[in-house]
Structure formats: structure tokens, C-alpha cells
């Protein structure tokens, strides 16, 4: 396998929540389709498909993506076939590595029901709660609008899935307070961060092009600070991400305190194999194993 040849002589393995991963890289939810899995065999320590919801969602009308300097804004609208069809099709994501599942609902009860449904399946190693979607019971504010909202939803999910590792995925706004709330409500790990609310305008047509979330290299410094601040505040491990585009970026997020690193938008413009190979080169030069890097800022 191409990947293996390029990462020999370094220890890439890491451990999180009792799960052993062959590399610290994980695809960010919503950025790796099953059709593209073949290209990334060996790169990721776990697979994390797009967020699933209680019922099928058609998603937003196009245009859904717009390019920005060093990034893009997307407004996909969580298009997905709904949890039942998603679970039927789950084997399509089997690359022989642990499988994390991302869920989102419109109410706390939705979230809890999803956690119960997916965690009872032995193929699911952990559940990520995508908390940046609107909570219809709270006037459309998101589930990570503040510590109280985070605490309520994570508590309900914890009760619904008492034994499965639960990750709470947060946005950068108010991230430290929200991280504390998620930890005290029983989250086993925190994913930091989701996209940043953003807008693009087509000046020629004098119209809004895409209103959605900004991702890609442009958001990296914001994400690094969020990861750094959270990792210094909580005891649970952090899955860091936001703009990770190179092997050095992976190292930076781990130094900031991440145990696992999510790669999203960059996988549209680069071969993730390259990112892992660069990260291996970094470790080789540093004379370190991946697991030693977390929080190892001097």
C-alpha cells in the first residue's frame, strides 16, 4: 500500500477513550463520501461519515459552496438519508478501522433517540454530537449557544448511550464555557471546532451567493486557539480541527493539545496521503511518536 511505504519507521498510533487508532487523523464529518474511501485507505485512524439525522433531509437548494481566499463557505443543509438508511448502509464505511458516527437533531429528545439508536450497534465505536445545528425549541439558537444548552443535550445523550464514547462537537464561539459544560455533563471527548458562520456575495449579480460556514486554511488560527484554550481547561481529550491542510498543521494541533486531528476541506484540494506522509516526516525529524506530541508545547 502506498501509504505504508511513506510512513515507515515512525509510531503513528494513538489512543483515545480506550480506542486504539493506527494514526491520529480522522476525516471531519461531512467531508468524505463513501465513494472516495478507496483513495484514503491507511490514512485515517478512524472513519467519521457525514452527520445523520432522525429523518432524511434533502438539504439546501444550490448554490451550496463558494470559494473564499484559502477556504470555502458551505451551506449543505445536512443532506442525508436519515438514520435508518444510514445504518443499513454503514458497512460501506468499513475500512477495518474504528467507525465514529456523527448525529444531529432538532430537539434534545431527537439527539437522545439518535444516540440510543446508533450506540446499540456494535459497529459504532463512538458517537459525535454535531451541536452546531438549530434547536427548534430554543428559537433556532444552536445547541452550542451556551453552556446551559450544551449541558442539557449532552446530559440527555449520556443517559441514552451510557457506555459508548461520546464526543461533543463545538463551534469556536464561547468554546471554553461550552467545553466545561460538555465535560461536566459526561462527554468523553470534545471536537473543536466546526465551521465559522460566514457570507459570500456575488457583486456582479448584487446577490448573496452562499450564507453558511467557513472552513479551510483560512480558519486555522482561530481553530488552533480554540483547541489550545479548551485543552488547557478540560481533562477529557480533544479532537482538533479546522483548516488542517499539511503535516505541520497536524503537528500544530497536537501541540496545542489535540489527541486526534480532523481533516476536512483540505481533502478536496490535497491528497490526504500527502498530509499523513508529511506528518510522519515531522515525527521522524523530531524523534517522537504521535502520542507524545499532544500538548507538548515548550
Amino acid at each position: 500500500m502506498v501509504v505504508r511505504e511513506r510512513v515507515t519507521g515512525v509510531d503513528l498510533s494513538v489512543e483515545m477513550c480506550g480506542i486504539t487508532l493506527s494514526t491520529p487523523l480522522v476525516p471531519a464529518s461531512g467531508t468524505l463520501a463513501k465513494e472516495a474511501l478507496g483513495e484514503v485507505e491507511g490514512v485515517y485512524g478512524a472513519i467519521l461519515p457525514k452527520t445523520t439525522t432522525p429523518a432524511a433531509r434533502a438539504g439546501n437548494p444550490p448554490p451550496r459552496v463558494a470559494e473564499t481566499p484559502a477556504g470555502m463557505v458551505n451551506s449543505i443543509g445536512l443532506q442525508n438519508p436519515g438514520v435508518e438508511r444510514f445504518m443499513e448502509d454503514l458497512d460501506a464505511f468499513d475500512l477495518g478501522v474504528p467507525l465514529f458516527v456523527s448525529v444531529a437533531g432538532e430537539t434534545v429528545r431527537d439527539f437522545a433517540a439518535l444516540c440510543e439508536r446508533v450506540s446499540e450497534d456494535g459497529r459504532v465505536a463512538a458517537v459525535e454530537l454535531n451541536l452546531s445545528c438549530p434547536n427548534v425549541e430554543h428559537g433556532g439558537l444552536t445547541f452550542c449557544a451556551g453552556p446551559a444548552a450544551v449541558e442539557e443535550v449532552v446530559t440527555a445523550c449520556r443517559a441514552a448511550a451510557p457506555t459508548k464514547p461520546l464526543f461533543a462537537k463545538l463551534t469556536h464561539e464561547g468554546v471554553v464555557g461550552n467545553a466545561r459544560a460538555a465535560e461536566s455533563a459526561g462527554a468523553d471527548a470534545l471536537t473543536v471546532m466546526n465551521t465559522i458562520p460566514a457570507l459570500t456575495i456575488d457583486a456582479k449579480r448584487r446577490s448573496v451567493l452562499v450564507r453558511g460556514g467557513l472552513s479551510g486554511p483560512a480558519v486555522k488560527p482561530v481553530a488552533l486557539k480554540a483547541v489550545h484554550d479548551v485543552a488547557r481547561t478540560v481533562r477529557v481529550p480533544v479532537l482538533g480541527g479546522g483548516g488542517v491542510t499539511s503535516g505541520t498543521d497536524v503537528a500544530e494541533f497536537m501541540l496545542a493539545g489535540a489527541t486526534l486531528v480532523q481533516v476536512g476541506t483540505a481533502s478536496f484540494v490535497r491528497d490526504p496521503v500527502e498530509i499523513l506522509a508529511e506528518f510522519s516526516d515531522y515525527l521522524r525529524e523530531a524523534g517522537m511518536g504521535a502520542a507524545e506530541l499532544t500538548g507538548a508545547l515548550r
Binding site: 467531508t31 465513494e35 483513495e39 457525514k50 438539504g59 444550490p62 459552496v65 443532506q79 481533502s267 478536496f268
Partner: peptide, 18 residues
Amino acid sequence: GCGNGSCNGCVVPVDGGY
């Protein structure tokens, strides 16, 4: 966005969705 199915950005409308 991506060209390989990963981003769900390039959709066209069909009966019952995109």
C-alpha cells in the same frame, strides 16, 4: 467543491430531493 462526492455541494434537483 470536491469533485468526488464528498462535499454534497454540486447538487441538482431530482424527484424527491437532490
